[in-house]
């Protein structure tokens, strides 16, 4: 098993964090994992991305040209990375900020109104966790329980008060795609 994921969005949307969260969960589940950030001369409002590779074997290259999964939090990221997703792969995108029908038909296009759902929870910063909940429901790279456990295990003590809200965000993301799959 090897999964390659690309997370991309505006600086401040929690792109790096959500990639790290997935990486921590993968480690806790006993997988090999690499996390690589973009670290150019980034600026506020610019785009940022990170790659996560999860495998049950030692990981050679931590970079991939055509990831199986891409998660786009803003329009520039969608436009940049939709074309790069491997055939038969998946792109999950933040439908609150990205209006598209999806150009490519050979990959799954998962629209998640992550920013609006996060707003309903009262904190726009939760859009990344909403997105992760939706992604893992459609494509169970890891279980949602693995993410819950990783949040619980690795959240810094001074942020512990945010744990319930993050768990809610995860469920909200999972619910929104579950509804869609059902209809």
């Amino acid at each position: 098993m090897q999964e390659e994921l690309l997370f991309a969005g505006f600086g401040g949307q929690g792109v790096m964090f959500v990639g790290q969260l997935l990486a921590y969960a993968a480690m806790d589940q006993g997988y090999e994992v690499t996390w690589i950030p973009s670290y150019g001369p980034e600026m506020r409002g610019g785009t940022a991305h990170c790659y996560v590779v999860i495998s049950d074997k030692p990981i050679g290259s931590p970079v991939v040209r055509n990831p199986k999964v891409a998660i786009a939090f803003n329009k520039p990221s969608y436009e940049k990375y939709e074309g790069l997703v491997a055939e038969g792969g998946l792109i999950a995108y933040n439908a609150s900020l990205i209006e598209t029908q999806g150009e490519r038909k050979d990959i799954d296009q998962i629209a998640v109104p992550a920013t609006s759902l996060a707003d309903e929870l009262g904190n726009l910063k939760l859009a990344n966790i909403v997105m992760l909940g939706a992604l893992l429901t459609v494509r169970p790279v890891l279980t949602l329980d693995a993410i819950r456990e990783a949040l619980d295990a690795h959240i810094p003590s001074h942020r512990r008060n945010l744990l319930p809200l993050n768990l809610q965000a995860l469920d909200k993301g999972a619910a929104v795609v579950a509804d869609r799959l059902a209809t």
Partner: peptide
């Protein structure tokens, strides 16, 4: 190289 410096791994 910078990638080893910046990447995270267990």
């Amino acid at each position: 190289d910078g990638q080893i410096g910046q990447m995270m791994e267990p």
